[in-house]
Every structure is written in C-alpha cells, then in structure tokens.
C-alpha cells in the first residue's frame, strides 16, 4: 500500500481519492449511504418530539409583559386565551383581568382549634382553580401534626383514616402565605411573579419560563409545577376565570394559591373558606377595622408559620383561647 497524499482529502479513503476536489463514484456512494442512515437514525431518535403539542401560539410568544400591556392589548390577549380555552375545553370562559381594589389588603386567618383535617378545602380549591387532576396539583396541603409540637418534620400529608379528627393530633393546612417579603418573587429571573398592592403574589403563566427557582425559595411548599400537560375533565372546567388567576395553565409553568383572585377581587370569599365545614377559615380586608380578620388579629392569639425566616406572611394561624 502506497501512502497517498492526505492534504485536503476529506474522506480519508484509499488510493482512489483524488485530492483535486473530485470524488469518485464509489466513495461518494459509500459516504452518502453512511450519512443518510446516520441522519435517519437521528431523525428517528427525535420521534418523541412529534408528541409535543403543547406549544404556545406565536401571539403568546411575542406577548408583552403583563405590566406593560395597555388595556387594548390586554383585551386582545384575553380574546386569544378565550379562544384557546374554548378550543381545548369546549366552553367559552368568562375571562377577565381583575385589578386590585383601592384600600384593600387581604389577610387569611385559620383557626387550628376548629380544623378537623377533612381536606374539603383542598378539593374545593382544585375545582375552583382548574387544577390538573392527573397528575394532581393541589395548592393546599393539610398536615396531621401530633399534639404538642410544631415540628413540620413530624407532619403527615398522607393520613387516610375512616374519620377525622383523630385523637392526639391537630391538623394544619398550609398554602401560599402571600408574604409581604416574598422570597419567591426575589428569585424569579424573569419577573413572572410579583406582589400586587392588595397583597396577592401572582404569576403570569404566559411569562413564566419554568425554572422552578421560586419553588425552591418558598419555605412553605406553596408552589406547584406543571411537569406534564395538565388534564382537566371538560365538564369540570370552572368558566369564571381571571388572567392572573385560574385560567388553564400550560405544561412547564408554576402555579400556586392566589387567594382566589377571580372571586376575592370581585368581593367574594375564597372557595376554600366557603367549603370549610367547621368555619375554621376566615378571610378579609385587614385595612377595614370592622372586618373579621381585624377582629381576629385584635382579639385572638395569632402566630405565623416559620416566623424566623422573615417572610412576613399574610396568613395567620390562631387558636380559640
């Protein structure tokens, strides 16, 4: 075998290679067969991408940030979402963008003496907020805690007795605390989550990139991530929707409790409060001295969860003593 000049010879083939730019028929066929089968293998390995259907539309992609939208643009965005929801779920939603009210700051109070751990709040919340049923996404987690401790490590999420309450335990529902100093907002790299002036920390699902920093930052396990496309039965869709609230989410975005923005900014109580069979949940405007929450903060022994982390929650627990 005589060594052949290698300079400029790309296919490295034997003596038939002429390095003056010409490729002979045999080596061309050989190379292109390998190349074509390689490309076919790569293409086939990408086959699962065909199943990706949950892309946002172009309009969604080029949409401006929520805070930069003027009313006309907002109306266009709402129109697009209405059409998308109708296409996906066969129901025309009553979707609007509700703004915070003047002189209103929301506070939630939960009476641990009364809570019996029945988890009705969890499922009323799921129904109200069009949360994914499979897999389950739930904003409220009820902890069964042994009497005499607030060590969260001792809490049990998965209790399932015949009836509640069980002797020797108390129940502690945990959801978004709508902190005044929210760590989740600080870590968001794209400003997709922020605190509104009525105290609700909201998420723009169209702006979220799904990095899950906020989930890691939250000391209350309040944020949930859509790992898969949310699945909601069509007949279970709640058509009363708000842009920053319970409109259906895509795969790959965060969501969390927003004090039922679609209800509370329209003057109504949250869904978890209305369904609570014992009346353990109380909600209202802390700036109104006549409100129930003002009465509780004045007259009851309230505490906040993980006070030491300095989040200043707007969610208070109290006892009837």
């Amino acid at each position: 075998m005589t060594p052949t000049p290698q300079t400029g010879c790309s296919n490295g083939a034997g003596g038939n290679c002429s390095c003056s730019g010409k490729v002979d028929r045999r080596s061309f066929l050989r190379t292109s067969t390998v190349l074509a089968s390689g490309i076919a293998a790569i293409a086939a390995s990408l086959a699962p991408l065909r199943e990706l259907t949950d892309f946002g539309s172009v309009e969604e992609f080029i949409q401006k940030h929520y805070k930069e939208l003027d009313p006309g643009e907002m109306e266009k965005v709402l129109g697009r979402i209405r059409t998308e929801v109708e296409k996906q779920y066969g129901i025309r939603p009553h979707l609007r963008d509700l703004k915070p009210m003047d002189g209103v700051e929301f506070v939630y109070c939960l009476n641990l003496t009364r809570c019996i751990g029945c988890r009705k709040c969890v499922h009323a919340c799921v129904a109200e907020h069009n949360q994914s049923r499979s897999p389950e996404i739930q904003y409220i987690r009820v902890l069964k805690m042994p009497n005499g401790t607030f060590d969260m490590e001792k809490g049990d999420h998965n209790y399932a007795p015949e009836s509640v309450p069980e002797k020797g335990f108390f129940y502690m529902p945990v959801q978004c605390h709508q902190c005044k100093n929210p760590p989740c907002v600080k870590v968001c790299p794209v400003d997709a989550t922020w605190q509104e002036k009525d105290g609700i920390t909201v998420i723009d699902y169209d702006w979220c990139i799904g990095c899950r920093y906020c989930e890691a930052a939250c000391p209350y396990f309040a944020r949930r991530f859509n790992f898969t496309t949310p699945s909601i039965p069509k007949d279970k869709i709640n058509p009363d929707m708000a842009y920053l609230g319970n409109r259906p989410r895509h795969k790959g975005v965060m969501e969390k409790c927003h004090f039922c923005i679609q209800r509370t900014r329209a003057g109504k109580y949250p869904a978890c409060l209305e369904v609570c069979p014992t009346g353990a949940r109380k909600f209202g405007n802390i700036l109104d001295p006549e409100s129930e929450v003002s009465y509780i903060l004045k007259n009851k022994r309230v505490f906040v969860l993980k006070e030491e982390v300095g989040t200043l929650p707007r969610f208070f627990y109290y006892f009837d003593v």
């Binding site: 988890r119 389950e136 987690r141 999420h157 998965n158 209790y159 007795p161 509640v164 014992t278």
Partner: peptide
C-alpha cells in the same frame, strides 16, 4: 361537631 370522612390524600406526582 361530628367526625367526618376525610377527602382522599394527595396522590403524588408519580
């Protein structure tokens, strides 16, 4: 207040 049957526990994201 009567004891109630609790709603199902959260089914994990598994």
């Amino acid at each position: 207040f009567p004891p109630l049957k609790p709603a199902p526990a959260p089914r994990p994201l598994h």
